[in-house]
Amino acid sequence: MRLAEDAHDSDVGALKKWLERESGLEELARRGELQIHERAAADERGTPMGAGMEIVLLLTGWAANRLFDAVLDQTVRAVTAWRANRRSVESGEPPEAEVAPGDDER
């Protein structure tokens, strides 16, 4: 998932923490079936794009394929909720977010 280029580092960190506390995602992470990481954003060729950051959710283990759609749906809902919360506690519009499978999905 990527936040718009105008996102601050604090937005990336806050969204990552939000996802880590999301009940379904938190349970998968506790069981070792999901990892949530920040990394430098890359362009279509995989080349790092300056200071931009993205959040990567990695499903691991035998159930990864079965859980993929549910985790993707839950992540979209969590990002929507985070943006609404961010809008209510900080001034200005929160950054746009793109939630999409990466090159190595499923």
Score class of each variant (00 low, 15 high):
residue 1 M to Q: 04
residue 1 M to R: 07
residue 1 M to G: 14
residue 2 R to K: 12
residue 3 L to I: 05
residue 6 D to C: 03
residue 6 D to F: 05
residue 6 D to N: 15
residue 7 A to H: 01
residue 7 A to E: 04
residue 7 A to K: 08
residue 7 A to C: 08
residue 8 H to E: 15
residue 8 H to M: 11
residue 8 H to L: 15
residue 8 H to P: 01
residue 8 H to D: 15
residue 8 H to F: 05
residue 8 H to V: 01
residue 9 D to S: 11
residue 10 S to P: 00
residue 11 D to C: 04
residue 12 V to K: 06
residue 12 V to I: 15
residue 12 V to F: 02
residue 13 G to S: 11
residue 14 A to S: 14
residue 14 A to G: 14
residue 14 A to L: 03
residue 14 A to Q: 10
residue 15 L to G: 09
residue 17 K to S: 11
residue 17 K to C: 00
residue 19 L to M: 03
residue 19 L to F: 03
residue 19 L to W: 02
residue 20 E to Y: 04
residue 20 E to G: 04
residue 21 R to Q: 12
residue 21 R to E: 14
residue 22 E to P: 00
residue 22 E to A: 03
residue 22 E to R: 08
residue 25 L to K: 08
residue 26 E to M: 10
residue 28 L to F: 09
residue 29 A to Y: 03
residue 29 A to G: 13
residue 31 R to Y: 04
residue 32 G to K: 05
residue 33 E to R: 13
residue 33 E to S: 13
residue 34 L to N: 03
residue 34 L to D: 01
residue 37 H to Y: 12
residue 38 E to W: 00
residue 38 E to L: 12
residue 39 R to A: 15
residue 39 R to V: 12
residue 39 R to Q: 14
residue 39 R to H: 10
residue 41 A to V: 04
residue 41 A to H: 03
residue 42 A to P: 00
residue 44 E to T: 09
residue 44 E to K: 09
residue 45 R to P: 00
residue 46 G to A: 07
residue 46 G to T: 05
residue 47 T to E: 11
residue 48 P to D: 02
residue 51 A to I: 01
residue 52 G to C: 04
residue 52 G to P: 00
residue 52 G to M: 09
residue 53 M to K: 15
residue 53 M to H: 09
residue 54 E to H: 06
residue 55 I to G: 07
residue 55 I to R: 06
residue 56 V to Q: 07
residue 56 V to I: 13
residue 57 L to P: 06
residue 58 L to N: 07
residue 58 L to I: 15
residue 58 L to Q: 14
residue 59 L to T: 11
residue 60 T to S: 11
residue 61 G to I: 11
residue 62 W to P: 12
residue 62 W to G: 05
residue 62 W to V: 12
residue 63 A to N: 11
residue 63 A to M: 10
residue 64 A to I: 01
residue 65 N to P: 09
residue 65 N to W: 02
residue 66 R to C: 03
residue 66 R to G: 14
residue 66 R to A: 15
residue 67 L to Q: 12
residue 68 F to I: 06
residue 69 D to C: 03
residue 71 V to W: 08
residue 71 V to A: 12
residue 72 L to H: 12
residue 73 D to G: 12
residue 73 D to H: 09
residue 75 T to C: 08
residue 76 V to H: 09
residue 76 V to S: 09
residue 77 R to N: 06
residue 77 R to Q: 09
residue 79 V to E: 07
residue 80 T to K: 14
residue 80 T to A: 15
residue 80 T to S: 14
residue 81 A to P: 00
residue 81 A to C: 01
residue 81 A to E: 10
residue 81 A to N: 05
residue 82 W to S: 02
residue 82 W to M: 03
residue 82 W to A: 01
residue 83 R to H: 06
residue 83 R to P: 05
residue 83 R to N: 04
residue 84 A to S: 13
residue 84 A to I: 01
residue 86 R to K: 09
residue 87 R to Q: 14
residue 89 V to H: 07
residue 90 E to R: 15
residue 90 E to S: 13
residue 91 S to W: 02
residue 93 E to N: 10
residue 93 E to K: 14
residue 93 E to P: 07
residue 94 P to A: 05
residue 94 P to M: 02
residue 94 P to E: 02
residue 95 P to V: 03
residue 95 P to D: 08
residue 96 E to L: 14
residue 96 E to N: 12
residue 98 E to S: 14
residue 98 E to V: 13
residue 99 V to Q: 06
residue 100 A to Q: 13
residue 100 A to S: 15
residue 100 A to D: 09
residue 100 A to Y: 07
residue 102 G to W: 08
residue 103 D to N: 06
residue 104 D to W: 13
residue 105 E to L: 02
